[in-house]
């Protein structure tokens, strides 16, 4: 009896060993490893287009959580395992760039004049490859039930959300934990034309907020499930949710802030040459079309059409977003928000 028991353990361990070692020895020769904070479907389509074109196999680890992927690049700094880090705003790539974890590269497309300068990092450490605005998302059914009877306006501007009918009914982001939450905070400061005025607005907005969601994807399900009537979200996530049948509406308010979706090459990765080809590929017309169509994003190339259900990028009014200021003052502004608003709740 006890012999059988030991035998079973030994067999189990052996099975684990064999299965564990087996696939390692069968690694293909030309491969790049991609850490992706993009959605899985877009990544799949991009991979299928890239592989036959270059003969390079793409092994991607897709987690729609750019911060996690970035932390992983950082923790592997002593012996990088990834070649490419794709997805997430430039805010997430910049700290990696500052700490020397990224490889400088200047793709030809960036100097072709087809990509506006705001999406190009002059040092070549990160490369903007899509754009996206912050939007207001609305649960129409709840709006009709709870806001309309109380005289609240349909939210067309950020200021509409200050109406008392919205008190405690908005899902926002916590700037201390969500990158987008900080872009929202900084955007309101730039919109108000000063830090004090900006915080004044944020304090009034706070009365409308039911919850500062702690993660990026948290606001959409909150609004869809009716935990909040309206909320703050990224356009691409919202459009994708609507495409998937979620009952959701959105408005791109004037003077909104935006993200610069970025891709970067990890310094010292196993296949930096392959990585350069991938960056080139992502900026090609074909790849940009895929990103626009299936990724629900605005392409950075001016010669690529946007989705027919999106307003033209030029018709959107973005707030004058001072990215260097926002990056430099992050710790201070988040702490101020904590003191004035976050800790009062």
């Amino acid at each position: 009896m006890r012999v059988a028991w030991m035998a079973r353990i030994v067999v189990l361990i052996l099975v684990a060993v064999v299965l564990g070692i087996g696939p390692i020895s069968a690694a293909p020769s030309q491969t790049i490893v991609v850490y992706s904070g993009m959605d899985e479907y877009t990544m799949e389509v991009l991979t299928k287009a890239f592989e036959p074109k270059t003969g390079i196999k793409v092994e991607s680890l897709v987690l729609a959580a750019a911060g996690t992927m970035s932390a992983r690049v950082r923790s592997e700094a002593s012996a990088p395992k990834a070649d490419i880090f794709i997805g997430g705003s430039a805010e997430i790539h910049e700290p990696l760039a500052r700490d020397g974890l990224l490889l400088a590269y200047h793709p030809q497309e960036e100097t072709s004049g087809r990509i506006p300068a705001e999406y190009v990092d002059p040092r070549g450490l990160w490369h903007g490859f899509y754009a996206g605005p912050l939007v207001i998302i609305v649960n129409r059914k709840l709006f009709d039930q709870e806001i309309k009877p109380r005289g609240g306006p349909y939210p067309r501007t950020w200021d509409d959300l200050l109406h008392p009918a919205y008190a405690g009914r908005i899902a926002a982001w916590n700037p201390a934990t969500v990158g987008g939450g900080y872009i929202f905070l900084a955007g309101q400061i730039f919109r108000a034309g000063g830090e004090d005025k900006g915080f004044e607005w944020l304090k009034r907005f706070d009365a409308s907020v039911r919850l500062y969601g702690p993660t990026g994807p948290s606001t959409i399900p909150l609004v869809v499930r009716g935990e909040a009537v309206a909320g703050v979200a990224w356009l691409d996530d919202t459009a994708e949710a609507i495409d998937g049948g979620q009952p959701l509406e959105y408005v791109i308010p004037p003077d909104t802030a935006g993200e610069i979706g970025s891709i970067s090459i990890v310094k010292g990765g196993p296949n930096s040459e392959g990585a350069k080809q991938f960056v080139d590929f992502v900026l090609t017309k074909g790849a940009q079309e895929v990103i626009a169509k299936y990724g629900f994003k605005y392409p950075v190339r001016t010669d690529v059409p946007i989705r027919s259900d999106f307003p033209a990028l030029t018709s959107l009014k973005f707030v004058r977003y001072d990215r260097p200021f926002a990056l430099q003052n992050r710790d201070r502004l988040v702490k101020k928000w904590e003191e004035l608003i976050g800790s009062k709740r």
Binding site: G67, T68, S75, I92, N174, T177, L211, P214
Partner: peptide
């Protein structure tokens, strides 16, 4: 479930998830 109820384990996670702040 926690909403915006800060706890140590989740805060640690949010710092990575949101800000890549290891």
């Amino acid at each position: 479930i926690g909403g915006d109820f800060p706890m140590l384990a989740t805060e640690a996670w949010y710092q990575i998830e949101g800000w890549a702040d290891l």
